[in-house]
Amino acid sequence: MRVMVFVKATEDSEAGVMPTTELFEAMGRFNEELIKAGVLLSGDGLKPSSQGKRVAFDGPSRTVIDGPFAETRELVAGYWVWEVKDIAEAVEWVKRCPNPMFGPSEIEIRPFYEMADFGDVVTPEIAEQFDRLREKTPAR
């Protein structure tokens, strides 16, 4: 199964504080382990929310909100996409990750939806329309 693993933001990451050399190295070793285990599919770090935007929806209205956003602990500072057998394996890998932040921090694991999970919510027509849209998305 495919999971997305979120590194949650902290005050430091939101302030744009760079990790230490030691942490970079430890994270490099962890990524290396993920690669050698055939688990890592992709991943990247994200800039602080001060450089992000939000668009709020309410009926037909669209309101653009500039970052930074207040609820620091709910923000995402980085992510991986992993291929694992089950979520227990993902949990074990996360436990091996060095603490990505200076203070207390959290990492969240979320399995991907697969088409089969949608059941009756997605009619063949909706699936078809969704497919047509994706057809226009280049591979890279």
Partner: peptide, 15 residues
Amino acid sequence: QNRARWDRLLIRRGL
């Protein structure tokens, strides 16, 4: 084949 069903992440990795 319906090419929209191709897995883009795997294609990117393959390329």
